[in-house]
Design a binder for these strands. Structure first.
Lengths: 191, 191, 191, 191
DNA sequence: TATGAATGAGCATTCATTCAT
DNA sequence: GATGAATGAATGCTCATTCAT
């Protein structure tokens, strides 16, 4: 089809602005919540508010873009892991990865929650990608006898969100985190 | 209605308003988050804003009161359960109770998070009561050999918050909820 | 007929309440300005807000009552002084008295300003009484050759208000205050 | 003079808005007191509230800016006068100028009061400038034998505030004003 | 295109005044 | 009469979004 409007080449500085905006917004939303004024995000990114709103027509759109990027990165990592290990290890490594990457505010829990039931189509896409990959990992691990066969994708997503919330509540204590993983992973074993 | 001759007429209205305000705020904060305008809460309770601010000098104070009441109710239920069963059953029944009672948005997770690290003294008290009772239940179940001995109170709180989040993410599906419980409870067993 | 509503005997406690309210309001308005909430004044007087508003139907009415009482007390003192001394001494003593009594916020300046041009009839009465007495003192002192004959009552009131403002600005320094008096009194002398 | 490096290049319309806001606020605060709602000031200046708060982050900041501007204008005029006349005339001309310029409500009295004891640094600066200039004028006039040598700067400030208050109380009557000046200036003479 | 000034609906909170107890 | 809980208009201030420069 040739050049699609959606793939129109962004001017170098515009692309850089967009990227900076996303980076800064991710950082800010993660550490200080979504209540931070857009103006502050723009300033931290070194641009004016107008530029922010040119790239993201709404604050919510910015938030969504942050989540999409996060979900995509998660999907990529998930795919990598799935490709490189045998099923059981892939599954559990991926579980840890998802959780450990969700450090900060209860941001990831929401992102995953959004992955479960969602309204926005952009997010739908990215979260569908994750769900597909997780499904593959799950059934792989189940076939390999490493995970209880009665669990479905919905329960896996819930457990991921839940484990993330547990970790967030626990804080930095590494031994404690390991014990949480231990409880969840033991619980995931076939009986 | 039903004027009781023995009730002091002075506080009757005020008490009812306070109670209504707390009920409405609990409902509203739980289902729609803490961003709801105070005016709307007041209207839903059938009082003017002034009345709301007479009873709770700050929006934050109202939120705190809601959480305290919830925590107190949780503490009471916990104590009842602990008194009536043998240790293992008491522990697991209480776990379920805490989760099932935390219906609604990510409210309970926050309440429990508040139980972990907190600033306000009123909340401190109520959450300390819960923690004490949970600690008793936990060590009882551990002595009875029903729960892994390496878990501490902090991990238990994290697991409660996490399981709550998982349930919230999962929605109403009863079989799915049971499977989540199953995973967590199996994981809690001594190996 | 019979008992006039305006002279109806106030019940003992009602009278005491009214008096306490006036005392407290005088104190509070003088030291902290008129922005203090009525509720606080009521509390300081040991009564409920309702009682305050029974005695003074409006906050402004309370303020007015405070000023009237103050003006009346000033008028009385002025009359005393006028009666007891020879004209020149009476005039200058009275000048000092008015100023020294007006310690605190720039309350008295306003009261005297109100004595000049005013809207409320109650105040009109009391301030007219002061003006009359001051006029007597002024012309007496002028006849005695102690004060410039070209000054009128209006200028005297202005000088009183101004000297009060100067004292307020100066603060407690007694030597400074004396120098201010010295300037004004020298200036009042016939040339 | 020329552009100050510290002054951010303000956009033309922004500068105009800021100026309008200051003008309107000066007018409004002077004639109707500081109780006037910010919204009304904004409307009178033909801008939205947001614009007002962009320029002056607080109502108090606006009030302060108004006073600073007034004080600066006073300081400038004072300097001009001091430069152009011999000491005695400079002193008395300046005294008149300060008073006559303080037309309006009890605004100038407050500004001078602020010059006496103050908390805000911006005001401190401008008022310090005035005080310095007044001090020079005062000692000059005293050396020239035109003013009592026992008066200090504090008393001068108090007399200025007081004379302003007297004029305000007196109203427009030109003969009366002249008599007030006469009283004060005679009183300032060395005995 | 980027900028940041302008906008104004919206929010938490206060306080004079009323009225049920 | 006295009380103080209830009322709600009003206020200072914020912030997502628009638009002139």
């Amino acid at each position: 089809m040739g050049d699609d409007a959606r793939t129109r080449p962004l001017r170098a500085d515009a692309a850089r602005n967009r990227a900076r905006l996303l980076d800064v917004a991710t950082e800010v939303f993660t550490t200080r919540g979504v209540g931070v004024p857009t103006e502050e995000i723009a300033r931290a990114a070194g641009v004016g508010v107008g530029t922010l709103f040119r790239h993201f027509p709404t604050k919510e759109a910015l938030l969504e873009a942050v989540m999409v990027r996060r979900l995509e990165s998660i999907a990529d990592r998930t795919a990598e892991l799935a490709a490189g290990s045998e099923p059981a290890a892939a599954f559990f490594d991926c579980f840890r990865l998802l959780i450990d990457q969700s450090a900060g505010k209860n941001d990831f829990a929401r992102a995953l929650a959004a992955a479960g039931v969602d309204v926005h189509s952009t997010l739908q896409e990215s979260s569908a990608a994750i769900r597909d990959r997780l499904d593959v990992l799950l059934t792989g691990a189940q076939r390999a006898g490493a995970v209880r066969p009665d669990l479905g994708l919905a329960e896996l997503l819930a457990l991921l969100a839940g484990t993330g919330a547990a970790m967030e509540q626990l804080g930095a204590d590494p031994d404690g985190r390991e014990r949480i993983y231990s409880v969840v992973f033991e619980g995931l074993r076939p009986r």
